[in-house]
Design a protein around this nucleic acid. Structure first.
Lengths: 235, 235
DNA sequence: CGATTGGTTGAGCCCATTCAACGAATGTGG
DNA sequence: CCACATTCGTTGAATGGGCTCAACCAATCG
């Protein structure tokens, strides 16, 4: 193992095309790599950052699974997203330089870190990187619009079907099974994310089971009738 | 009036600090100005762009009022935002190069246009502009998270109170009254935005009226008890 | 082992929806 | 200018989907 190998973070990463280096050529990846750093593993249940922390860095998930959780002043809280490998944490803090949510690991996870100041400098050097990053931010805007549509106009079973379909799709892209899902989050997390109570989530999963759409064993879910699920969403 | 005056769009604009040129020095504004263009007025009811249109430009609202409207395949639709002067339209299209919502003028409006390719070039020339733009995108992410919280965990009256408070705040920043509001949108638009039916919106406005929180005359609303409204939101 | 956390299921309730009727305001064409 | 249609808004009555409250079970952990 030579020295350049030691410093390579993105270079040898199997999911780099899902992550910040997407679309960069080898030379550009090398440049980015010089400012990326591994971080100590984040253990299940630990926070990568918390509401109120000052914003210094973006984090790319190398492996593992996170949720982001907004805490409202009055004690209300809401899960705003579930993030898996290749996805970026911290985008919402760019606006205020202070983190406005908690990022909690739902399983032992590895993340890569880049100081946002460095990243902006790199964006000035590589228009390609900046262009892609603009798209990344915009994609997050679109993702959230999808949630707004879901929360604003779907029934509980439609929401849950959409949630499972989305999870399956993202798993499949990462070369995991698109039909065998292991939920990393509790029913309460799902409910919070979908604007439902945990009892409702549980009931509807049971109903999906009864309708032969799913096989549900605790957090292990096997999608039996993907078409049936999709029919629910766009009906 | 000299020639430089003629080409100045941002330079002499009274709301430039709320808009894309925010935080730029005079020289930088000049540079930005060279690529900004006025556009024909958008009449009430007309669309600035529609779902499916190819994305070429960002638009800054110089005067007027817009709504953005997502159309789902199945016919479902949802208002994703109401935009007023200084705010930017088109951010969500950066991700796909295709507009994924309609931007409809709710009153006769003036917008300024800049080709996004030009804008990205300018971002490479002016790190300050790029930095601010990153914040603008991030701020939109945060705004939508606020809506998610609202849709996911607030009751109907809380949603409406939050909506009115937000509108009042943004009006006040623009040196308009923060207590005398003229709603540019229908009850149905409000309902769509807040995940409610138009009848519910109407009923709750009437209730707020009965509770001496508001004076409601059609689309003219006077906020009588701002504290009472805010108490609703964070209760 | 008891304590805690996470999940399922039932019964009753309530908030927002649905369906409906009606009124006000606006615009259009004869 | 009026008759008419259309759009927008308000209000009432009945319905129902998801919530609340509660009991219970399973798995995990110290």
């Amino acid at each position: 193992m030579d020295i350049s190998e030691l410093k390579s973070i993105c270079g040898g990463c199997s999911i780099r095309e899902l992550c910040l280096p997407a679309g960069l050529n080898d030379q550009e990846v090398l440049l980015l790599d010089q400012h990326m750093a591994h971080r100590n593993p984040v253990r299940k249940g630990e926070s990568l950052y918390r509401t109120g922390d000052s914003f210094k860095s973006l984090y790319a998930i190398r492996s593992g699974f996170f949720k982001t959780n907004i805490l409202h002043e009055d004690g209300r809280s809401q899960v705003t997203g579930f993030q898996m490998s290749g996805e970026i944490l911290g985008l919402d803090a760019i606006s205020t330089d202070i983190h406005i949510c908690d990022a909690v690991a739902l399983e032992d996870s590895m993340v890569c870190e880049i100081a946002f100041e460095r990243f902006e400098e790199l964006g000035q050097l590589m228009s390609n990187l900046q262009h892609r990053f603009n798209k990344t931010l915009s994609r997050e805007i679109v993702r959230e619009q999808g949630i707004m549509l879901l929360l604003g106009s779907m029934r509980a079973d439609e929401r849950l079907a959409a949630f499972l379909a989305n999870l399956a799709k993202r798993s499949a892209i990462r070369h995991q099974s698109g039909s065998e899902l292991v939920l990393r989050m509790t029913r309460e997390d799902i409910g919070s994310y979908l604007g439902l109570k945990l009892e409702t989530v549980s009931r509807i999963l049971s109903r999906f089971h009864d309708q032969n759409l799913l096989e549900v064993k605790g957090r292990n879910i096997r999608i039996i009738d993907a078409d049936g699920l999709n029919a629910l969403i766009s009906k």
